[in-house]
């Protein structure tokens, strides 16, 4: 980041290549919309570029990155009405899906709908904790709240998700 702050675009390119999957993953898991997630990912990297001169390495870079994406995602859903995803990304191949594929898509649709039913802060805590594997302290830092609050968010989210995902959990 120090090199980026000096205007080194090669260093910035290295950051983008190394972290694009994380940024994309958080945005996509949270929003469930590829186009919006891509916009958020682009914006997140540009914010990081703009903020490079002011960046202070007080936390792990990945946590800082998560905070930037989290803010953008939460702003995005605050400004827009929630869209409950009725679709799961289509497979690229033209061959008709087998029974297993259909079942996998149905499962993903169920997960998506269950996630979309959560309030945004709970959903983000779930994404960061269970998909990105951040510990509660890092989730708290990314969502700009306390560890206790994150633990409560996760407990409430699990409580809401449990009945919706019961069929899949017991599979």
């Amino acid at each position: 980041m120090q090199a980026v702050a000096q205007g080194d675009l090669d260093a910035f390119n290295a950051i983008v290549l190394r972290h694009q999957e994380t940024v994309w993953g958080i945005a996509y898991r949270f929003l469930g919309d590829g186009h919006a997630a891509e916009d958020i990912a682009q914006e997140a990297f540009l914010r990081i570029l703009d903020a490079a001169p002011r960046y202070k390495p007080s936390a792990e870079f990945r946590t800082y990155l998560s905070r930037v994406v989290t803010r953008l995602c939460l702003d995005y859903v605050r400004k827009r009405r929630p869209v409950y995803a009725e679709h799961v990304p289509e497979a690229a191949d033209a061959t008709p899906p087998g029974a297993e594929q259909i079942s996998a898509r149905e499962d993903e649709k169920t997960i998506r709908q269950a996630l979309d039913s959560l309030p945004p802060n709970q959903r983000m805590a779930v994404v960061l904790r269970y998909w990105e594997g951040l510990n509660c302290r890092d989730v708290a830092e990314a969502t700009e709240t306390s560890v206790k609050a994150v633990e409560r968010l996760l407990a409430r989210a699990r409580e809401s998700l449990q009945p919706k995902l019961a069929r899949l959990i017991e599979k």
């Binding site: 390119n13 994309w24 898991r29 891509e38 990912a41 779930v126 959990i169």
Partner: peptide, 23 residues
């Protein structure tokens, strides 16, 4: 079990050319 379920859920690949567009 919920953790296992989330881990099994696929994530679409990073869109082609995302890094190039950012750069």
């Amino acid at each position: 079990r919920m953790g296992d379920l989330f881990n099994r859920a696929s994530l679409p690949p990073v869109p082609d050319g995302l890094a190039e567009r950012v750069m």
